[in-house]
């Protein structure tokens, strides 16, 4: 029997921990595209330096997100992984890793053309996933 003494209030479900962390990493990686554009327009090396730190930070956070998701799966805190979303984000992270090496070159060619192209593709993937939130699991029926 269900408890009918209390009204059925639908509690908004708390986001999964990994989704919070993915959102942070995605923000950092997307910001690197913005600083790349700034470098391209100004040729001020400060923007190039900003980009490589944003990429490095984004990659560290992406790694933490992956560990968190793994923990959540093992602890059965989440349902099934949504593979298309997971793979898209993983590809974005891999491109960002390659991009970190490109951005570690010295001078103009650290950004133009390969670096900024990779930042653009990474950002495009992130936004296309992010419009539906940062959770990488299938949300239906995941919460008790």
């Amino acid at each position: 029997m269900t408890d009918n003494t209390r009204p059925d209030i639908r509690r908004p479900s708390r986001p999964h921990a990994h989704a919070l962390i993915v959102s942070v990493g995605a923000t950092l990686l997307g910001a690197a595209f913005v600083t790349d554009i700034a470098y391209w327009l100004t040729l001020n090396g400060q923007w190039e330096t900003s980009s490589i730190w944003l990429l490095t930070g984004g990659l560290i956070v992406a790694f933490l997100a992956a560990l968190t998701l793994l923990a959540e799966v093992l602890l059965r805190r989440v349902g099934k992984i949504s593979w298309p979303r997971f793979i898209a984000i993983a590809v974005a992270a891999l491109l960002a890793l390659v991009n970190a090496f490109v951005h570690s070159r010295d001078g103009y060619t650290a950004v133009v053309p390969t670096g900024i192209a990779l930042s653009f593709i990474t950002t495009l993937i992130i936004i296309s996933i992010g419009v539906r939130g940062w959770d990488l699991t299938s949300l239906s029926g995941t919460r008790p």
Binding site: N44, G45, Q46, E48, D106, G107, A110
Partner: peptide, 8 residues
């Protein structure tokens, strides 16, 4: 002050 002006 750099390899190839990467410090500006």
């Amino acid at each position: 002050n750099s390899n190839i002006t990467e410090n500006g």
